[in-house]
Amino acid sequence: MLAEDFVREARSFQPGPPRPQLLQLVAYQEARLPENEEGDDQNAAFRSSVLKALSKKFSQEDRPLIRFLLEQEIVYHENAWGIFESIRFCGALLFLLAQVEDVCLLWEAKTVNFDTMCGFDVQFLVGAGVAPTLAYLQHIKEEWAEDARIYLEECQQAGDFQNLERYREGLRASLPEPA
């Protein structure tokens, strides 16, 4: 199946989720590499292709699928070294959709390993705006939310969010052109 066909079929189920058989094509699937003990994700390349196809034209209706793809990237990054562009791509799409409720999943992606902590842009967490995100986190009485709020406040004080609209425009400009 081509990535464009996957996106078209996934969208045919909206507003509900795509059928499980379809999601299996992009779900994390560990594959042991014969030359070493490190695991790999046999669906990573296709998932990346789906993200690129999806990003040509996406909307709020695509949000559940993008969240699912990010969840799979998180699992992949729990089992791999480094950071792959596909996790950043998911973060960028959710940032552009700007739903404050996504901060939990985005924080999980940011903190999944050392490399994502360094390479997953903190701006992805505040797509809905810095003040609304901090207010949302303030009301969640869980340790992760407190950690995220403190981290975001430190980033705000450091000036990491001063040019958030320019950052948003840069992300939009970097997406593939619609077909």
Rank of each mutant, 00 (worst) to 15 (best):
L105Q: 03
L70M: 12
E143Y: 09
F161D: 02
F120V: 09
A131T: 13
I140A: 07
Y151L: 12
D62P: 11
F114A: 10
R63V: 03
I74H: 05
F84M: 07
L137R: 08
F58A: 07
Q99S: 04
L94C: 04
V126T: 08
E154M: 13
F84K: 11
Y76H: 10
I66F: 14
K141H: 07
D102M: 02
K110F: 05
I150S: 11
S59T: 15
E154S: 09
L134K: 12
R149P: 05
I87W: 02
D102F: 00
A145H: 03
Q156I: 09
Q99V: 03
L134D: 04
N113W: 03
E78D: 07
M117I: 05
Y136D: 02
A135C: 06
S59C: 12
E73W: 11
G82F: 09
L125Q: 03
F161Q: 08
Y136A: 11
I150A: 13
Q157M: 14
Q162A: 05
Q123N: 15
F114H: 08
D160G: 08
A80T: 11
E108W: 06
L65G: 01
L134Y: 09
E108Q: 15
D62R: 14
V130H: 04
L152V: 15
A80Q: 14
E61A: 13
C104E: 04
T111R: 10
L94N: 01
S86V: 03
A135D: 14
